[in-house]
Amino acid sequence: MRRSVYGAFAAGLAALLASGTVLAKEGSGGMPQLDPNSFAPQLVWLAIAFLALYLVMSRLAVPAISDTLDKRQAKIQGDLDAAEKANEETRSLVAAYEKRLADTREDARKLMRERGEADSAAAAARLQALHDKLAAEIGEAEKRIAAQRDEVMQGLERMAEDIGQDVYAKLAGQPADRAALAAKIAAAAPGTRGGGSR
């Protein structure tokens, strides 16, 4: 394909050269590009201009641009690295936070469990104490009741003896033998003697 392109260019050039010679006949001097007198000044100034531009480019422009591009690249890379580092830091901070949160939660749970155990132990002890106190009070009350009952029974016996004596005296017209009467009453009501033992 390249060769066919060359062919096309060669043909085009030939055509232009031909047109140049035709124009030359009209008195305009042909293709000015082919005038050998014009070669030397063009080559001299091409060398000067090209060398000048080459020096400007290689000494000034290329170092300036590559320096700038490097600096920009370094800046972008530095920013990216910083961002990466910040991201890493954030991740580790989040991890530390989460670990602390989990630890704290665990501590709280343990504390609550311990507190709960202590509370129930204390409650049980208090309950026991209450229970004991109540039992003691009940026992005392029972003793008191028994004592009162004995008293009442004794009073009742004495009353029965008095009533028996009075009834005997009215009926028989003479005072009764107190001891014998007491024995008879006691025999009639055996449960009243030795109170408290039901």
């Binding site: 030397a40 000044p41 100034w45």
Partner: peptide
């Protein structure tokens, strides 16, 4: 001895 004239071509090169 070389023709190094400053031409219209030289102008536009510069």
């Amino acid at each position: 001895g070389i023709d190094a004239s400053f031409t219209n071509s030289s102008t536009w090169m510069i």
